[in-house]
Design a protein around this nucleic acid. Structure first.
Lengths: 110, 110
DNA sequence: AATAAATACCTTGTAATACGATGCATATAT
DNA sequence: ATATATGCATCGTATTACAAGGTATTTATT
């Protein structure tokens, strides 16, 4: 991620699950999709993404399969039911947390 | 912090600076103040807070002084001009980032 | 009077997370 | 011919947070 790196932590898995909740994608496209949806505010590093994908797969939040298009082999990831549940939880937590942070920051302005 | 610990990272320094931007406080009260303002969504661990305070002081974002009240010695922290500038930057970054995350999450809902 | 809980400071070791650098390979554009 | 884009991946390092532990005083409870 660009931006100050401290800010970004913790949300990677949620963001990956979020894009995969719409359609199956492979690593490279997940990065492009996140850039697009965030309007280039962030760009996930490959060194961040692949370990996240492997960890989510190992815990059955994602399932992977290989497919070939245009002579290129791509590893697609599919979100499982378990993964959808995790995403819902992470989204809820994010919202609660973001709102609490906003309250603290706004207090200081008043 | 409570909540899933992954979520919380990166915002500690910003939150500390934020409460100190209103008035000088000592460590113990910073924790209480954050609980109050977040409506108990989070409670910063002492093992998180003190290293953050010391790092911010070392870099001149904060200045510390001891004061005694009711027979208790307390180490108060005061935000510097430099610290206020850092806070403003971190708030801006947080807002940009939080909005981008929201866009990604909302895309997935549509 | 004894004990527990709150107040107040702090450090150390461990775990989690992210990322830069690097490596490999193919395809397309210049 | 060469650079850029596509596509997978790992390794070492840095950062961050926290649980656990330590010290000491004051206040509330029994």
């Amino acid at each position: 991620m660009k931006l100050s790196r401290e800010l970004v932590k913790g949300t990677s898995a949620m963001l990956v699950l979020s894009v995969l909740s719409q359609k199956d994608l492979y690593g490279y496209m997940i990065i492009r999709e996140l850039e697009l949806r965030s309007e280039t505010v962030f760009s996930m590093n490959e060194g961040t993404l692949y370990p996240v994908l492997h960890a989510l797969e190992a815990e059955r939040f994602l399932e992977a399969y290989w497919e070939e298009h245009d002579g290129r082999k791509r590893k697609y990831y599919h979100i499982t039911k378990k993964g959808q549940k995790l995403l819902a939880e992470k989204k809820e937590e994010w919202q609660v947390y973001a709102e609490a942070v906003a309250r603290v920051l706004n207090c200081a302005e008043a």
